[in-house]
Design a protein around this nucleic acid. Structure first.
Length: 582
RNA sequence: GGACCCGUAGCUCAGCUGGAUAGAGCGUUGCCCUCCGAAGGCAAAGGUCGCGCGUUCGAAUCGCGCCGGGUCCGCCA
């Protein structure tokens, strides 16, 4: 646990402002913030307190700003505070106060930036790809974003469970079971029977990929000819479960290649079998939110086979959705939505007050109804669902989009992408974009050894830092080093960046935006490289000064703190720090 | 017809939840380095923040309406 200096400063501001104006309502105080300044000339931090407070207090913002400045300037740790612009208060930290953060970082080590325990459990669900084949490139962004987001939220002090929802209950896994059977017959050396079976299946065999051949062979090894010439009812469940289990193995391998791991794999089928859907719907039913009704046809282009049908509907419009949503099909079986309601009810029953689902953009139309369902299930409790949508990724090579057709055989599977650029580049670059914006993944940049490649740039900064530390050898008492020699603008800029880390963790977690971590690291690397380059022009700024042990020690402490923060950030992104570039 | 996401420099994108003179990388141009802590450094040019109203001390950010791109819209999950 480490202190967020900006939060601490905000508390000081709140104390001083309420001492001056005791009557301020809490909603007003809540709007007060303390942020880093964009321009170093404006000091280290700035607060909008005077402007926020001016109107409710009926005073001039500049007057409040100067009074607040005087109060703040009296505090230990603040060298200067002055009103600026329309009513900002710019705060310059005492140099000693700023430098004191370096030993704080050193002693916290990679736990630096770890938020205080919020005492709250958050469930983060992502990937949840159908267990019918290997992961493809489209799954990748969600996997990386979900994983980094879960790490980030844990870093911010929440108890996080990473969860994968296995859709093993619908038509698609029945189709999988049939393909397993088809491959099974082939593996037994009965191609005629296999073809005859395939021809008998309405709609034909799905999942034509070769990845199911070994599954059929394994199925044959286990069951020999026991299922030959037997009706589906004899073997379909067995084949389906066998297939799902093998596909999950495959998916787990793909995820491991991307260094994505889950705490919980949750089975839809198991939930259904255990009566979860009945339970979940009963909650809504008892709240009077389920009824029999007929939906209006969609406006505009009406599907050809449209006909009015009476269905069991969930009153999602009461919770902000556009139309009520069916929980049962016309034949009385449950819709996927019903199962998803049950699944979220189950998560809540497991004690999660906050849930985050990471979905692909094609599920965008599904967000409102799911959030409506969670609100309905929550009743008077605080439980809530956030949905992070990941937009489409276009993979680019040499300035042109890489075709992702199966026929072309290029970059269909996630493994192809990982093999091409490595898990670190995949993860970092996927996280260099806000998830709700479409992105281009440039293969050329991903493997470049230049600044174009943000992974390289950040890892290079870490490698450089480690190289300095290796060259410095063992220096004892770094935490007690005299740091007063750290006065160069590049050094101070770097320190300012380092102390922003806890705040970045907090705000990025709050916003569910892991990409902010990637950008922070890129900037931090930039500040470190800038300091390094300054040493190239001016030898006096180099880290290791043979005849000046005090300055060397101070700089080594700074370099060590930098390496720590980079590692801490990379750990959130799930990218490995490197000791040296090869 | 409707819902959701996006629109910021030539290109790819940030912009910290409404703040000060809108930033970065690439590309372009001009210098410097390339006897090492290699796989560059410094600087310049480049903007109607899609358009128009509105909200307020203050808008790229919030609201409404258009325009453009994307995703999707009852027995697929």
């Amino acid at each position: 646990m480490t202190e967020n200096l900006f939060a601490a400063m905000r508390n000081w501001v709140l104390e001083d402002i309420t001492a001056m104006l005791p009557e301020l309502p809490v909603e007003v105080l809540a709007k007060i913030e303390v942020t880093p300044t964009r321009d170093a000339a404006h000091g280290d931090m700035a607060t909008n307190a005077a402007m926020v407070v001016a109107k409710p207090a009926g005073k001039n913002p500049r007057e409040i700003a100067s009074a607040l400045s005087e109060a703040l300037a009296r505090r230990t740790g603040i060298a200067k505070a002055e009103p600026a612009g329309p009513g900002f208060v710019n705060i310059m930290l005492d140099a000693a106060f700023l430098l004191r953060q370096i030993p704080v970082i050193l002693s916290a080590s990679e736990a630096y930036g770890q938020g205080t325990d919020k005492g709250q459990k958050i469930n983060v669900e992502y990937v949840s790809a159908n267990p019918t084949g290997p992961l493809h490139v489209g799954h990748c962004r969600g996997a990386v974003v979900g994983d980094a987001l879960a790490n980030l939220i844990a870093k911010a002090g929440y108890g996080v469970t990473k969860e994968y929802y296995i859709n093993d209950a619908g038509a698609q896994v029945i189709a999988l079971g049939r393909v397993v059977y088809f491959r099974y017959l082939q593996a037994l050396g009965l191609p005629e029977k296999a073809d005859a079976y395939a021809a008998s299946v309405a709609g034909g065999m799905q999942y034509g990929g070769a990845y199911l051949e070994p599954v059929g062979a394994a199925f044959a090894a286990e069951h020999d000819t026991a299922f030959v010439d037997k009706p589906e009812s004899d073997w379909l469940d067995t084949a389906r479960q066998f297939g799902v289990s093998k596909m999950l193995d495959l998916i787990r391998e793909d995820l491991a290649a991307l260094r994505v791991y889950f705490d919980v794999f949750s089975s839809e089928d198991a939930l259904v079998q255990a009566g979860g859907v009945t339970r979940g719907l009963a909650i809504l039913e008892s709240a009077g939110l389920i009824y029999q009704g007929t939906l209006e046809p969609p406006k505009g282009k009406i599907p050809e086979d449209w006909e009015p049908r009476e269905q069991k509907l969930f009153r999602s419009t009461e919770f902000g959705d556009d139309v009520d949503r069916p929980v049962q099909k016309s034949d009385g079986s449950n819709t996927y939505f019903a199962n998803d309601i049950a699944y979220h009810a189950d998560k809540m029953a497991r004690g999660f007050t906050q849930m985050i689902d990471v979905w692909g953009a094609d599920h965008g139309g599904y967000v409102k109804r799911m959030q409506a369902a969670v609100k309905a299930l929550a009743g008077n409790t605080q439980a809530s669902l956030d949905v992070v949508l990941c937009q489409i990724v276009r993979v680019m090579k040499d300035g042109a989009p890489v075709r992702m057709s199966k026929r072309a055989g290029t970059f269909v599977e996630l493994r192809d992408l990982i093999d091409e650029v490595g898990p670190d580049a995949v993860r970092f670059i996927m996280l260099m974009r806000k998830s709700d914006a479409q992105m281009e993944f440039d293969l050329n940049a991903a493997v470049a050894q230049t600044r174009d490649n943000p992974v390289f740039y950040v890892q290079y900064a870490h490698a450089r830092a480690r190289s300095v530390l290796r060259a410095a050898g063992e220096i004892s008492g770094l935490a007690d080093a005299d740091l007063t020699s750290l006065t160069a603008p590049e050094e101070l800029a770097l320190i300012r960046k380092l102390i922003a880390w806890p705040r970045i963790v907090e705000s990025a977690a709050e916003a569910r935006e892991p990409h902010r971590i990637a950008f922070f690291l890129y900037e931090l690397a930039g500040d470190f490289h800038a300091l390094w380059n300054a040493g190239r022009d001016d030898a006096a700024l180099r880290f290791l000064q043979a005849d000046r042990p005090t300055e060397t020690k101070a700089r080594v402490a700074l370099v060590s703190a930098t390496a720590i923060v980079i590692r801490s950030g990379l750990a959130v992104l799930g990218v490995q720090p490197v000791e040296e570039m090869r």
